[in-house]
Every structure is written in C-alpha cells, then in structure tokens.
Design a protein around this nucleic acid. Structure first.
Length: 737
DNA sequence: GGAAACTGTCATATC
DNA sequence: GAGATATGACAGTTT
C-alpha cells in the first residue's frame, strides 16, 4: 500500500510537471474512471444546474454588450472545468489551483489527490480528510471509493423529505463509524458534543438541536478576540437553554417590531438559541441577527461588499453565505473538493428530494475548524448524522453558489481565489479564433472599458499582427496608391502615415487615410463584423457607427480622386453613413474619419491646403461637428449608465446600513427598557425599606425618591405643601442611618 | 404593430 | 472668442 501510494503520488507529480510544461498527460491507464473517483461508483453526473449555467452563458442571458466579460470568460472557464470532471483526463485546472493554493502542510492535500487517483486506497483508514477541510467518514464502505463514498446514506436532516430520501444507518453502524475517527477528531467531536449537549434542544428532533450552534467551533479557532466572541455566544446559548435570564422577565418582551426593522428585507426565523447575553432570550430574531452581525464583523471588508447585495435573500441563505464567505481564504483549499463532490450530492439527494435547498435550515449546519492547518470541515457532529452532512453542506454550498441572487456575491470569492487571471486563449480554443484575432480582441477589450458600443480603437502604438492581417485584406483596393509609402506595410491601408499629407499632394483624394493621432482620439466603437461575426456575443455590438468604420470601409473606399462609382461601390454605398454619402456627393477629398478625428490645427491646415467650395467647407465642418457630438453623446450615455450603476450600488449599501442601524436601534431600545426595569425594581426595593420617624413605611402615593442635582437621592413629597417637611424627614432618616 | 431600447442629431451650456 | 466637451431633448432606427 505504501509503495502504491508512493508511486501514485510520484505519478501525480510527474503529471503536474508535464502539465506545467504544456504536455497533456493521459493517466487513464493508471487510474480508475475519474467520474467514479469523484462521484462514487453508482453516480451519474447531474448537470442540471450547470446546464442552466451553460444556457446563461451561451444563450440569451449573457447580453452581448455586457460589461462583465471577465466574468463571462471566467465562468466559461469554470464551466469547462466542471464539464471536464466526467472526462477521462487529468483535471489540470484543479492541479493548477492546487499548486497555487497549496498550504504549508502539503501532505494532506496530496492525500486527497491520492485518494482520487488510487480509489481503493487513497484514504486513510478513518477516511479523514480534515487536511482539506472535508471529513470523510464511512469511507471504507465500498472500498473507500473517494469522495463519492462520504458515508452517503447517513444523512439525517431535520426535514421529512430528506429523511425519507436517505436512511440513517443503524446506531451500531454509526458507532462503528465513530470508532474509525482519529483521536484528534474524537477530541473535536467530544468538544463539539459537549458544546452541543443541551437536553432542551434534543427534543426538537434528531439532528436539529445539535446543529443549532454551527459557528462556535468555527469561531473558537480564531484569534483570542474571536474566541472571546465564541465564548460570549456559548454563554448566551447556555443562558438560553437553561432558561435563567439574568434580568427581569419583562425584558423578554419583544420590542416594537418596527424598531426591530422587521419590515426590512431580512426576515428572521424564530426558535434560535440566544447567542449573546446582551440580547433578550425572548427575541429569537435578534440572536439570529446577532450571529449575522458577528459574522459580518469577522469578515473582510471586501467580502462585506460582496455579500451586501445578498441581503435581499432570506437570512438563512445569507447566513450560510457569510459562513462560507467568512472562511474566505480557507475556501481556496476546499472549493475544488466541494465542486467535485457536489454532483454526487445533487444526484443522490435529488433522487429523493425535490431540492436540497428545502432541506436544512442554516442552524442545521455548521462548520468546524481544524486548528492544526486552519481548514474547515462542513459537517455534522450529530451522532445520527455522523459525517454525512458533509455532503449536504457541500450541496448547500453549491446551492448557494447556484442561487441566482447569491451567485453575485459568492462567485467572485471563488473565482478570484481560484482563477485570478483570465485567459482569452481559453475562448480562442473554443471559438476557434486564431491568436492574432485574440490579440486584437484583447486590445478591444482593453480599450472598451464599458462594454458598450464605445471607444473601440486600433491602437497605433501596438500594430498587432491582427491589424496587419486586417489591413492586408483591405490593401487590395488601396495598395496601388498607398504601397508607395514605406510605412504602409506596418500601418496597413488603414493606417496613417506621417507622409500622408505629402502623399495627398501627389495623389488627390485621401478618402480613407487616417492619422495616428486620430486613432488615438478615435473613441467610437466599431467591431468589424467580418472578423467577429462568429462570436455571437459580439453581434450587434455596433450598429451604424458610420464615423468609425475605417477598417470596413477601406476595402471599398475609393482612391484619391476616384469618385467614379463602380458597381461594387454602389452596392457598398448602402452601408455608408449619411455624411459619407454627402461627402462623396460633394466630392470632399477627405474621409469622414479624417474630418472628425484630426486635431483642429491639422484639420484647419487640411482645409487650407485644399481649395474647397463654401458648400464643401460647410459640409466638412458639419461632418466634424456631428461626428464629435456623436462620440460625445456616446460617452455621455456611458457615463450616465455608470452613474446609474453606481447609484444602485450605493442604494444597496445604504439599505444594508439602514438595516444595521435599525437593528442597533432595537438593541439599544431593549437595553434601555432593561435598565429602566432594573431601576424600577431597585426603586421599589429602596422605597419599601424607607420608614418614617414612627417606623411606618412611606406611602408611595405621597412620597417619591428623586435625584438631586448633586446625584444624591432624596425623598420628596408629591405635594408641594409638604415638600419641606419631607426633606427634613429625609434628613432625619439619613442621620439615623 | 407597438413598446422599448438604441442611436444620431441639434441646441445649449460649460470649460 | 473659438473650440471642445457635456447633456437634455427629439426623432429615426432597431430590437
């Protein structure tokens, strides 16, 4: 076994090296089917959710003008990665992520890879993969078939549908499984069970009570502050479970629901244990919210930003999202396994469930931490569901990822952590774009910062091969006049040569020439249809940007002085803009692009060099004005959209802030009430002990205790006529005391 | 065929 | 004051 594992790991290392060097490694003969490794022996990959993703990517949901091209490419890459899971190939992407995110303790991740590769022997006897944050119990079943054998069948969730779908193992078998747990795991479980030991909660159903504090172990593994926070939570829970409130019973009264912000987008669930001693036990919504708030507090600011939009979700999903997001970097290590295991979960769970979303509440899940390596395991510590909720939690993780509204806040966490850079070559491989086109496309994407039909320009500073190839196609009609210039080969037919004006002098009609400076300032977008028409998401990016079509018009543009309309020109004339036609009709010897984009000095020089009629001058100036204004309008609209998007983002943030403030207000309100009640009790106690000179108690109808300005408490009469007497009496009482 | 979105253009204000 | 730019409004075009 040791030798086999050693050789397998060596094979993996070789495969990694070869994959890094660009060589594809077929390890199929040495491995069991990858699908079986990942999904188990009897599973078939369920791609329903990913089909939805595919549709959204390849179908209608991805707007061709969407600015989120990064997300598009990343999603495609991820999708391809997921699809590759059922192919017989080495998951190179996973290996890449593996190397990038490898932790200082490399052996545990490697053991997982070994588990995937070895199948029968990859796991330890106890099936412990805690090094990857995934506890695998019952792994010996069916030969310990990797992730797919994560004790499946033992899922016991407080949901009738779930319970009907999966049969919990007999108690004795669970005990057998628990015997396989390592000592550290046993300690962790003991700790957790001690934490979860709560008779009052056990009656609520199997599995439920033991899931009620999912975050204590998670928090307990953090720093001291977090540990303190966890202690506070624990104290609050015990206080709640024993029903021993420290303050008056009236404190439990729920404050004004409006103050609690219950009308907010966050809906609270009842029946949660109290987590903070500062919160009334009779306010189940607040303790849940306290968890939520505390989770937010331990999250990174950027994560907060990402999760903020998720507030529109039910708090259960949000809480899970935060629980997942809060482990942030640790997720780097686990996500691949989660993804790998999820299809199995989906399939199996879907076999008897309508959807796993409906199964557990957030309180039924928890995340435990492994302090040794800082990883987490999503799983149950309930004896009835020992180890199996790993699958459920994994499924929940994916369900969260697949939650449409939550995909936005969570996906970036995963994508950014796993796939930092986006390679357009992935798209090239799928779409069949040659590298030169991809270079051009990259330039386009870099230049177009909004995704709208704006600011597409061919940078003269970087005459790429694609531009050269493009211009070569257009050079057929223009080379006769332009090929005489030395710079043509570099700039192409569409390029502007510094000697262009000299060339103009020698040959009339500069239709189509355009300056390097012009191209720098040329802001209007244009994607040449012939070059990107095979990209459906680039269709309709441009409509009729007649001022910015130098590439498309160049092939049929007339040469200088040649305004005779050949049949081809007549046909193509229909694609020209109005001003183009006007310019041609007026025999203006410049292209509209030239007219529009030349700097004013050069433009004026151009006009002075050519003897133009008044009508021509007027037309040229109109063309320039309209062209400038058209680009300005495009920029203006883009800015307007940006402002709208920014405002929407601000609204989301303000809503979140308002919800927090309302919760804080409710908490303050409750604290004030509590203080008032304690003060009232103290007052009554003190007042009842007061005696007059004859040893009789004072009547609360006639007397009252009041604070003086100096802070002293004095007994005053409720009747002003007797005020002085009361004061003297009080003084006497003070003296006696 | 109508509504919505997109786009170009004009007029005007501002820099 | 000229030129460039920004933007609201309108109309034509496209989806």
């Amino acid at each position: 076994m040791y030798l086999k594992k050693y050789l397998t790991e060596g094979l993996i290392q070789v495969a990694i090296l070869l994959s890094l060097s660009g060589m594809r490694v077929d390890v199929d003969p040495y491995l069991p089917p990858l699908q079986e490794i990942i999904l188990g022996q009897s599973s078939a990959l369920t791609q329903t959710q990913f089909h939805n993703l595919r549709n959204s990517l390849e179908g209608q949901d991805q707007h061709p003008k969407s600015v989120d091209l990064d997300g598009f490419f990343t999603a495609r890459r991820l999708l391809g990665w997921v699809r590759s899971l059922d192919r017989l190939q080495l998951p190179t992407t996973e290996l890449e992520a593996w190397l990038v995110h490898q932790e200082p303790e490399p052996l545990k991740p490697v053991s997982v890879q070994g588990g995937q590769m070895e199948g029968d022997s990859g796991l330890d006897d106890d099936g412990d993969l805690s090094g990857l944050g995934l506890r695998m119990e019952g792994g010996e079943e069916g030969g310990g078939g990797g992730i797919g054998e994560l004790g499946y069948g033992q899922v016991a969730i407080d949901n009738n549908t779930v319970r009907g779908a999966v049969d919990p193992l007999p108690r004795g078998e669970q005990q057998d499984n628990s015997d396989n747990i390592s000592k550290e795991d046993g300690d962790v479980l003991n700790f957790l069970w001690q934490q979860e030991a709560d008779p009052g909660q056990q009656s609520e159903g199997p599995g439920y009570g033991n899931h009620r504090q999912p975050l204590e172990p998670l928090l307990s593994s953090f720093d001291d502050d977090d540990r303190f926070r966890a202690d506070v939570w624990t104290a609050g829970r015990h206080y709640h479970s024993h029903g021993d409130p420290p303050f008056g019973a009236d404190v439990q009264q729920h404050p004004d629901p409006e103050l609690l912000g219950l009308d907010e987008e966050v809906s609270f669930s009842a029946g949660r244990p109290l987590l903070s001693p500062l919160i009334s036990p009779g306010d189940p919504s607040m303790d849940l919210e306290q968890q939520w708030q505390d989770l937010l507090a331990i999250m990174e600011p950027q994560d907060m930003d990402l999760v903020a939009p998720a507030l529109n979700l039910p708090v259960s999903n949000v809480e899970q999202a935060v629980a997942i997001g809060s482990i942030n970097g640790l997720l780097h290590q686990d996500v691949s396994l989660h993804q790998a295991s999820v299809p199995r979960v989906h399939e199996d769970a879907m076999g008897g469930l309508s959807h796993l979303d409906a199964a557990p509440t957030p309180t039924q899940h928890h995340s435990s931490s492994n302090p040794s390596d800082g990883t987490f395991s999503f799983g149950s510590h309930d004896g009835a569901a020992n180890g199996d909720s790993d699958l459920v939690d994994s499924a929940l993780l994916i369900n969260l990822l697949e939650e449409p509204a939550l995909a936005s806040p969570l996906r970036p966490l995963l994508e950014e952590s796993m796939l930092d850079e986006i390679s357009l070559m992935d798209l090239a491989l799928e779409e069949g774009i040659n590298p030169s086109e991809m270079c051009q496309l990259e330039e386009h994407l870099e230049d177009s910062d909004s995704g709208l039909s704006l600011n597409f320009s061919h940078s003269p500073a970087s005459p790429s091969g694609s531009e050269a190839s493009c211009s070569s196609s257009s050079s057929s009609s223009s080379s006769s006049s332009l090929s005489s210039t030395g710079s043509f080969s570099e700039e192409g037919a569409v390029g502007y040569d510094p000697e262009y004006e000299d060339m103009e002098d020698s040959a009339e009609g500069a239709f189509g020439g355009y300056a390097a400076e012009t191209r720098k300032v040329c802001g209007a977008s244009y994607v040449e249809p012939s070059r990107f028409q095979h990209l459906p998401w680039l269709d309709s990016v441009s409509h009729d940007h007649t001022y910015n079509q130098p590439l498309s018009r160049n092939p049929e543009k007339p040469e200088k002085g040649c305004f005779e309309e050949s049949p081809e020109v007549v046909v193509k004339d229909t694609f020209m803009g109005r001003d183009d036609r006007r310019a041609r009709a007026m025999r203006v010897p410049f292209s509209t692009d030239h007219i529009i984009n030349l700097p004013v000095e050069e433009f004026n020089m151009l006009l002075t060099r050519h003897k133009l009629s008044e009508a021509q001058l007027t037309l040229v100036r109109d063309i320039r004005r309209r062209g400038k204004n058209k680009m300005a309008a495009q920029n203006c609209r883009r800015r307007k959209l940006d402002v709208v998007v920014g405002l929407e983002h601000n609204v989301d943030g303000l809503r979140l802030r308002r919800a927090r403030l309302l919760r804080e207000k409710a908490e303050m309100y409750r604290s004030v009430r509590e203080m008032k009640q304690r003060l009232s009790s103290l007052y009554e106690d003190v007042f009842s002990r007061l005696r007059d000179g004859e040893g009789r108690p004072y009547s609360d109808q006639e007397y009252s205790l009041q604070f003086n300005a100096d802070g002293r408490v004095v007994l005053t009469s409720n009747h002003t006529s007797t005020e002085s007497r009361c004061k003297s009496s009080k003084k006497q009482k003070d003296k006696r005391k």
